[in-house]
Design a protein around this nucleic acid. Structure first.
Lengths: 260, 260
DNA sequence: GAGTGGTCTAGACCACCAC
DNA sequence: TGGTGGTCTAGACCACTCA
């Protein structure tokens, strides 16, 4: 293309010392699309404009838009559906239901877990939590504690004890009642009611011995080895918006991982 | 293209009942490239032919070859280097050194682990191992046991106790001497000396209590919680070629994972 | 049949590397 | 300077969905 339309810059021929890294057109498009997502121009589950429309908007060819969308689909930000369109990823769909839960029964595939809410309270963020969530000390936070239970209707056994911390400001209306009433994935609640989309997460996994209180909640003997799974979740713009620690009982379950 | 060259089929216009899934050209190319890799036509670290050469060989356009290579690069089978060519992935490079080891020090980035070989013996594959490696019962296997140790030169502490099982036939010349003399990644030895490339792996992680023997080797008290990491590794064609169990001491280290 | 994403092509030009 | 991968374009046609 010879013209330079709407916000997209042609490849600068020469840059000052230590050039700020050449960025191809499709990456600029990707960045612009990311900003639109972050601004809420298209909501989770909704379709974004077609590739040709976006190409016209940005003044590039359809193939260039395509490459940008390809990458965002690989990042799980968008979902392509042939014949229908491209959609903003959501935690509402069955297929992405357990995208972040890697706990699997040793026998049989489906997790099929029940939830039991133990606690939900607002407080000033503890120092460690404030640091991880990039909050100023003294800012409000929400703590949630819950159990996940597995097994048939009669033989329900606790498997996961989760402790979550969320920044208080974006999660202003989050209460125990709200949580207890919610059916469906937690992250779906967050995106639907609080406009917070969980995009990616980092986990740190250790083996620990169950403390007295944890052991009682999980119905195991104190000292039982448990998987400690610390998770820091990020939303658009790599901003951390959730920290949680899960204690997984791995007698009949395991944490599965694929290495590529 | 209007002609149908060397082994590549055009999109069949109509298929019999329950059509065997339409496969685009670039996937057929990908499959052919995969077979060449498996056959050892290009060895780890070597360059494969240029995109134009491959396009000519397969009778497709350069863009189609490019898309096939793109996917194989995403699968970590190939590595692209602008200006130089496309190379068969290898475990020799620094960058892919610890592709499969997710254990990280709590403080500081580099793992920097030392190895200590404990055992290497040939035996008939135990039933469980035979099952996992798709061996017939009674077929030979190689068991390797080793320690990984972390810390400065004076304060070396055991961190990982690894037990590996390998199929005896492909690993015919593998001995304790061979292993002890080897400097560099284990998987590099496997690909260089035994023509076995580890491509991907599946891990199952649990928390367990250290048994007496394990505790002694790791220099911890019996009953100490350890991460049990079971890994099944695959080579070309999704054939399992290694099963290992690692016991990770996670007091100063953790298993890191990224969720997308 | 119209609209969407998916594939394939051919050609131009750019960025990087080696000689 | 020539060869490699990387980007971008324009256009054709296929596959899928839905009205």
């Amino acid at each position: 293309m010879s013209e330079t339309p709407s916000g997209v810059v042609g490849s600068a021929p020469s840059e000052p010392s230590h050039a700020p890294a050449f960025s191809p057109l499709y990456r600029q498009i990707k960045s612009l699309l990311g900003k639109s997502l972050q601004a809420g121009e298209w909501l989770p589950g909704q379709a974004i404009p077609s590739e040709f429309e976006l190409a016209a908007r940005f003044g590039v060819s359809q193939g260039t838009v395509r490459k940008a969308i390809d990458e965002m689909a690989a990042d799980n930000l968008l979902v392509r559906r042939q014949g229908k369109g491209t959609f903003v990823a959501t935690h509402a769909e069955q297929s992405t239901q357990f995208r972040f839960l890697r706990l699997t029964p040793d026998e049989g595939g489906a997790p099929a877990l029940q939830r039991r809410l133990l606690e939900c309270r607002r407080m000033r963020a503890p120092m460690e939590v404030a640091r991880l969530l990039s909050l100023k000390s003294g800012e409000p936070a929400v703590q949630v504690r819950r159990l996940l239970l597995a097994g048939g209707p009669q033989a329900l056994r606790p498997v996961v004890l989760d402790d979550l911390w969320l920044p208080g400001t974006p999660f202003k209306g989050l209460t125990a009642e709200r949580l207890a009433a919610w059916r469906g994935p937690l992250y779906r609640l967050f995106e639907a009611e609080f406009a917070v989309q969980m995009i990616r997460a980092e986990e740190k996994i250790r083996a620990v011995a169950a403390a007295a209180e944890e052991a009682e909640l999980l119905a195991v003997a104190p000292g039982t080895p448990l998987l400690s799974v610390e998770r820091l979740s990020f939303t658009y713009g790599d901003r951390p918006v959730e920290w949680r620690r899960g204690l997984y009982l791995t007698t009949a379950h395991h944490y599965r991982n694929e290495l590529n």
